[in-house]
Each structure stands twice: as structure tokens, then as C-alpha cells.
Design a binder for these strands. Structure first.
Length: 796
DNA sequence: GTTGCGGCTGTATAT
DNA sequence: CAGCCGCAAC
């Protein structure tokens, strides 16, 4: 991957080279003459940049220029000659952030300093380290990194071997558990008894088996990258000291997201010199579910005595209303470190809030709105599509937007969606590549023995497995032995021999310098019959898959060899297709962290969806607070215009469900919010809140409220008050109109708020088939219909 | 050994 | 509603 340009940078760092002296001199001269990277920094940023020695905690609110400060700090370290590039370690969480930082450091430094700092994600840096020291944890340096899919398949094998019912105890669940243990830096022997008892009392046992299996496969999973390095540092002080000498200055981005393992890794590395600068924002901690410990940031001062705390509070990104709305929401959380963001940018548009009848309506409205924004609106000058983002809580929400945008021809880009490298054909192709570079990769072997179909089904594979196991060799060798022993006959034997022969040839070519890795890849895909398989495939997606394969081969060009490519794939999870056309971005709130857009849409603000019910059920108030931080992250992505919306009805599992506006909606300070009332649907003003609650059915409310004590937010209380007080409350002027459920009969004339008049064709419980005069046949829920003759009573 | 159908289940968030 | 898994027929 691109994080490291210099293969031998570790060695280079260990043995200073001739150039370094002149570099230092040049750096010093530069530093004395001018420090352009200091220009435009505010006092707080400047302090963070210039405090080079000792521990520093930079508490940087959203949009306060933390990347600017961080990159300036690196530039400062280098140009003043305080450190050589390879003595600086900067860690981020995402590849995107690493790339961004690398670019900005490059721009700041220009050609002034040779070499690059150690800049990359926790994982990429750990792989690099682990390759050097693999043998210390029983691996070889060419270990493979398993993806989630391999992981699950492996675990499943172990689970079945234990005679456990993998229906009741799914492999996914165990994978999640093991992951969470690794996040907390618990090796199998260090696993607390309380945890080992999880998973039907087999958790600890299976965990140990899994680790053993990984070792025999010469493989590790994501969590291992960190866990192994922490283990090595703890058990081999000499190795640790080496790194402590190399990395003299450490910087960490998004510190609030570090988990225990990452924290330990950092602490070990920084233990001797304490030159560590962590940047973070407790209000943006949104990864608790994957082991992040906000506690890491909260107790920084205790861990690193004499730490300097710098708060960045001036926001340069958003208007005062956007900032005000975000602050209002986040104020609902307790135990914050507390920052007060301010901006000098006064005025601007308020945060817009709009309710919709249903999810489709929401998508339709947003599509129209986005089209209008391109040519300019009353509120905003014209902006390009790439200036607009839609941020959703869960990726399944994206679908309605994709559908709508496809039908109106609005270009969009899904960020972090189903990834290129997770596609079936790509994973198959990669399994071939993996087998070429590491013959003992049994998981890859299992994946492709019978892809394309070679007449090698379960039975044949089992024979191979038995043979491999009894001889203690890989599946690939086991297959060879099986053939030699004539343990397989017919077509399968011929095909298997062909495959093994092919693999040997491709492996040989890969080792041969005169054959490029691209040729090897093409050879493998061709000769194995894999491409042919898709060419013969008549399904509509086959051509697309072939295209993807071509793209895959093309991607190889950027790498030295297959090995390097596979590494890249294993670690790089973002797929930024550099497609020049302007597109609206659709992504999850999580994926949006660290990004900013002039215009942001935040759809789906409904209780249960956002905040997510599951989060609240599983983690109670803590979960709710993390959801609230997510809301905060979402709002603060916006520079000029932020639009929040919710829908009264949404299909869930194909069924229509009604929902209440998110409690976060009620936490938005009114003075920063504009409530939009689209024409046609929410036309009337009177008694709206009561209507809405009646429509939703009072019993639903009580039921939900009784279910958990998490329903104690101000927003929830207000809703309840509104319900009990019969007078027209000072409600926002939005409503979802419907009559309480009543029975309808086939043939009856009815009226629907959205579809107009129609006739009931069939009744199935509360679901009805209605033939509408204007909108055709629809399935609707009874509570959204009124008898046609009473329609006049309802103020539409 | 392969393919196709039907029933069941289940939703987050990601390196 | 959709994807996955298991089962039954080819």
C-alpha cells in the first residue's frame, strides 16, 4: 500500500544516512527564515504546533482545523530539524485520512525535506512491523491477512467440529466476540473467565483453537495485527526499544476512537520519550461498538503526566446556525470534556427540518431539492453535485435514494457501500492470486477448487482434507498426494490434476522475474477457466463481473508484485473510484467523519432508526449518547446548509411501519431551525401534534415507553405531555394525518391523503388493496385511509 | 454433483 | 423484501 514508499524504511531509519546532516541544516535554515506553515494559525493551533516535546492532547472540536494543526506540527518538526522524516510517526484510522494528511504535509514541505514521515493507519503500520517480527508470534513474514469472510468460514469449521449447532450459535457471533476480545488486547490465555464462558461456554476454547489454526495457516486477522505487535512489544523489550528509538515523535489522529489494543501499542511506543501528541474530540466518539474507549481520551492527563492540553474551539467550517444546532444536540450528553465551539461566521441559513409522509416521499423531495440547488435557490447560490452529501444512519437507507436518483437520472456515488473487493468474482480471483503467492493458503484453495465447476464437490474436498490432515500438509499438497494415491477417479481427478499443474506453473511464473505479475494474473484467470466461466454465464450480471475482473487486473499495474497487491487489498477498505463526473455523495454517518460538504442532508431522523433502537437496547444510555454524538457528527459536516428530515412511514422488512420523529429533532434549539412545510401534504396548522399522535395510536406510545427506561429524554417527555394535554400545544406545524384504525369493506369508497380517492379491492387485516382513481392499485394500511364520505371532515 | 425452489430469518455502524 | 440455507429432484 502507498503508506510506505520505501520498502526498507525501517532499516533506513535505523542507520542514519549521509543526507541527514545536510537535511537538518537545511531544515534549520528554513525554520529560521520563514515558516509558512505557521501562517494563518490561531493562537491555540499555534500552541499545539509549537509544543513539540512531551505529551500533548489536542482537543479539537469539529471543523476547528485539527488536520491543519497536525500537518503543521509535522512540518514544524521537520523543518526545524527536530526530527528526520522517518523519526516521525503519524497514525490515523482510515486510509482516507492518511492520504489526506500525506498530501497536505507534502504541500507544506514541498521539496524542502527529503523522505516521508511514517504516516498510515494503525493497521498498515502494524502489518509492516509484524512482517519483520512475525516469527516471534509463530508466523512467517509472508503471512496472509484474512478478511471477514475467511474468518467466518474458518470459525464455522471449528464450531461444527466441536459439535455445536451453528444455527443457535452462529459463527458471526463468535467472530464478533473474538474481535471484541482482540480489541481489548486479550490473548486466549489472558481471557477473563467471565468472557471465556460466553458462546455456550466454549468461547475461550474456540478462541484458542482459532488462534492455533491461524498460526498453522500462517495467517492472521485484522485484530491480530495489533494484538500480535502488542504481544511482541511486551515480551521482547529489545524490539520495543528499537522502535522507541526510531519513532521519536508520535502523533495520533482521532484519538477518541482508539481501542485498548491500539492504546497499549501507542503507550508502549511512547513510553520512553513521551513525545506523543494525540488529537481527538470526545464528542465525536462514535466507535464504541467496535471497542473504542472514550476513556482513553478522558484519562490522557493521568496516563501522561504533565500533559499539555490544548483546546481548539474556533470553528471554521459551519455557519452559526449549524453550529448552534449541533451544540444544542450534543449538550444532551453527560460527562463531556466540554468545549465551546464558536464561529466568526454570523448569519447563514438555519438548519432546515422537514417531515415527510413516507420514505419514498422523502427521497423524492430530496431529489427535487438537489436538482434545484444546482441552479441555485432562494437560500443558496448554485452548487455542484459533489458539494452535496446525504448522510444516513444505516446503509439500507441508501436504497430509496438510489432508486429515486436512478429514475430521475441524478448522478450519485455511494461511499463505503458494497465494496469492489468484496464482490464475488473479485474474491474468487484473489483466491487464485493468494494460492499463487502462498501455496499453503487453504482457505483460498477451498474457495476455488471447484470454481469454476470441476466436478469436485463436497465429497472430493473432504477426501483432500483428510489426506492433507493425516499428512500434516496444506490442502494443495494434500490434493497432490491424493492423486498420487489414486484416491480420486474420473473427471474430478483429471480436473484436479489440471488445476494443480496450473497452480504450479503460475507460481513458477510469479517467481520468474521476466514474467510480470500482470501476465501471471491473466494467465491464471484464463487457464483456470475462470474467465470462461463468466463468459458462458447468461445471467445479466455476468458482463459486469467480467468488467470487474478487467478492472482488477488493471489495478495490478500500480503494484510491484502480487504480494504487494494482496496486502493493499487486505487493508484498504475504501474504494474511491476517481471518477471525474460530479456526483452527490451518499454514505453512512460513520463514513462521513472527517469530511465536510457545503450542503448536507440528514434523512431518517426517526426514533428507532436514529437513534437506533438496537443501540439503545444493547447499551442503554451509553448507546443513546453515542447516537447523539453521531447526530453531532452529522450536523457538523455541513458548511452552509443542513437539512434534517424524517418520515412518518417507512417500509421495514417489506412492511409499512410508522415512526415518530427522532428525539434528537426535539433537541434542536428552535432558534437555529427552520421548519419547512411542503405544500400538499402538511397543509394545515391546527391541532397538528395531537392529530399526529392520534394517528400513531396512543397504545403504541405507552407500549414503547413502558418497554425501557431509556425513553426519558426531554423530547420523549414533551411528546407525552402533548399527548395528554388536550389543548393545542405549541407544536411544530407538521403533521401526519390519518384516522384511527377502522374497518373497511371490499367495495367501499375511501380517501387516502396521498393517493386520493379509490375503492377497496381486498382486505387483509389492516392491510388493504385499494384501486385508486388517479394513482392505480396500491397496498395501504387501513389507518391511512378514511371513508370517502367523511373525507370532507378531515382538513387536508 | 448440480440446480432450483421454498421457507425462514433478520438489519447498524468498519479497519 | 431479500439473501441465505437446506432440501429435493435432475
Amino acid at each position: 500500500m502507498s503508506t510506505f514508499n520505501d520498502e526498507d524504511a525501517f532499516e533506513a531509519a535505523a542507520a542514519p544516512q549521509g543526507g541527514s546532516l545536510s537535511q537538518r541544516a537545511m531544515g534549520a535554515a528554513l525554520g529560521a527564515r520563514a515558516a509558512p506553515y505557521l501562517d494563518g494559525l490561531n493562537p491555540a493551533q499555534r500552541e499545539a504546533v509549537e509544543t513539540l516535546d512531551g505529551p500533548v492532547l489536542m482537543l479539537a472540536g469539529a471543523g476547528t482545523g485539527k488536520t491543519k494543526a497536525l500537518t503543521a506540527r509535522i512540518a514544524h518538526l521537520l523543518t526545524t530539524g527536530r526530527a528526520r522524516p522517518n523519526e516521525v510517526l503519524a497514525v490515523t484510522f482510515t486510509n482516507k485520512a492518511a492520504r489526506e494528511m500525506k498530501n497536505r504535509v507534502g504541500t507544506l514541505l514541498g521539496e524542502a525535506v527529503e523522505g516521508v514521515p511514517w504516516l498510515g493507519t494503525f493497521h498498515s503500520i502494524c502489518v509492516k512491523q509484524l512482517r519483520r517480527h512475525a516469527e516471534l508470534v509463530g508466523l512467517k513474514s509472508n503471512f496472509t491477512i484474512l478478511d471477514t469472510d475467511d474468518q467466518i468460514r474458518l470459525l464455522k469449521q471449528l464450531i461444527v467440529a466441536e459439535g455445536v449447532d451453528d444455527k443457535r450459535w452462529p459463527a458471526r457471533m463468535l467472530a464478533g466476540l473474538i474481535d471484541s476480545w482482540k480489541n481489548r488486547a486479550w490473548t486466549p490465555d489472558a481471557l477473563p473467565a467471565s468472557e471465556a464462558g460466553d458462546y455456550n461456554n466454549l468461547g475461550g476454547k474456540l478462541y484458542a483453537q482459532y488462534q492455533d489454526r491461524l498460526r498453522t495457516l500462517n495467517a492472521c486477522d485484522f485484530g491480530d495485527l495489533l494484538l500480535h505487535m502488542v504481544t511482541i512489544f511486551q515480551t521482547h523489550p529489545d524490539v520495543l526499544e528499537q522502535y522507541q528509538r526510531w519513532f521519536r515523535y508520535i502523533m495520533v489522529d482521532e484519538y477518541q476512537d482508539t481501542n485498548v489494543a491500539q492504546y497499549m501499542w501507542l503507550r508502549l511506543l511512547a513510553a520512553s520519550h513521551k513525545n506523543i501528541c494525540c488529537v481527538g474530540d470526545d464528542d465525536q466518539s462514535i466507535y464504541g461498538w467496535r471497542g473504542a474507549e472514550v476513556g482513553n481520551i478522558l484519562r490522557f492527563e493521568k496516563d501522561f503526566e504533565g500533559a499539555k492540553i490544548v483546546k481548539l474551539e474556533q470553528n471554521y467550517r459551519s455557519t452559526e446556525h449549524i453550529l448552534g444546532a449541533a451544540s444544542g444536540v450534543i449538550a444532551g450528553n453527560t460527562g463531556r470534556l466540554g468545549k465551546t465551539l464558536f464561529t466568526e461566521a454570523k448569519g447563514g441559513e438555519k438548519v432546515r427540518l422537514i417531515g415527510h409522509w413516507d420514505g419514498e416521499e422523502e427521497a423524492r423531495w430530496m431529489g427535487d431539492e438537489i436538482e434545484a440547488m444546482q441552479t441555485g435557490t432562494r437560500r443558496m447560490d448554485p452548487i455542484g453535485l459533489d458539494q452535496i452529501a446525504i448522510l444516513v444512519r444505516a446503509s439500507h437507507q441508501m436504497r430509496s435514494f438510489e432508486d429515486r436518483f436512478l429514475s430521475i437520472g441524478l448522478p450519485y456515488r455511494v461511499i463505503g457501500g458494497p465494496r469492489f473487493y468484496e464482490r464475488l468474482e473479485i474474491r474468487d480471483a484473489m483466491a487464485y492470486f493468494r494460492l499463487i503467492t502462498s501455496p499453503a493458503d487453504d482457505l483460498a484453495f477451498e474457495r476455488i477448487v471447484n470454481t469454476p465447476k470441476r466436478g469436485l464437490g463436497d465429497k472430493a474436498v473432504q477426501k483432500i482434507q483428510t489426506m492433507a490432515r493425516s499428512n500434516g500438509v496444506s490442502l494443495r499438497d494434500g490434493a497432490r498426494l491424493l492423486l498420487e494415491a489414486k484416491g480420486l477417479g474420473g473427471k474430478g481427478a483429471v480436473e484436479l490434476a489440471k488445476l494443480l499443474d496450473g497452480l504450479d506453473r503460475w507460481s513458477a511464473s510469479a517467481r520468474n522475474d521476466s514474467v510480470s505479475h500482470i501476465e501471471v494474473a491473466e494467465m491464471a484467470l484464463e487457464e483456470s477457466g475462470y474467465t470462461e466461466m463468466w463468459q458462458n454465464d447468461k445471467t445479466p450480471e455476468a458482463p459486469g463481473r467480467l468488467d470487474n475482473l478487467k478492472e482488477l487486473v488493471k489495478a495490478l499495474e500500480q503494484f510491484e508484485n502480487l504480494q504487494g497487491f494482496l496486502e493493499h487489498i487486505a487493508l484498504v477498505m475504501d474504494n474511491d473510484s476517481e471518477d471525474a463526473t460530479e456526483k452527490v455523495s451518499i454514505m453512512t454517518l460513520h463514513a462521513a467523519k472527517g469530511l465536510e460538504f457545503p450542503a448536507v442532508f440528514l434523512p431518517g431522523w426517526e426514533d428507532g432508526l436514529f437513534p437506533s433502537q438496537r443501540s439503545m437496547d444493547e447499551s442503554g444510555v451509553k448507546g443513546l449518547e453515542e447516537e447523539r454524538r453521531l447526530a453531532y457528527v452529522g450536523i457538523t459536516r455541513a458548511e452552509k446548509l443542513c437539512t434534517i428530515s424524517f418520515a412518518g412511514n417507512r417500509r421495514v422488512y417489506g412492511q409499512w411501519q410508522n415512526a415518530l420523529p427522532s428525539r434528537f429533532v426535539d433537541e434542536l434549539p428552535e432558534r437555529h431551525v427552520d421548519v419547512l412545510t411542503p405544500p400538499g401534504i402538511y397543509g394545515h396548522q391546527a391541532g397538528s401534534a395531537n392529530d399526529m399522535l392520534d394517528a400513531l395510536g396512543g397504545s403504541d406510545l405507552h407500549e414503547a415507553a413502558a418497554k425501557a427506561n431509556v425513553y426519558n429524554s426531554p423530547g420523549w417527555r414533551r411528546l407525552q405531555e402533548r399527548q395528554s394535554s388536550r389543548g393545542a400545544p405549541k407544536a411544530r406545524n407538521m403533521t401526519i394525518d390519518a384516522q384511527a384504525v377502522s374497518a373497511f369493506t371490499v367495495g367501499e369508497r375511501v380517501f387516502h391523503q396521498k393517493f386520493g380517492y379509490g375503492e377497496v379491492m381486498a382486505v387483509d387485516g389492516d392491510k388493504l388493496d385499494v384501486s385508486f382513481d388517479k394513482s392505480g392499485d396500491k397496498k395501504v394500511i387501513g389507518k391511512f385511509l378514511v371513508a370517502a364520505d367523511s373525507a370532507g371532515d378531515v382538513p387536508f
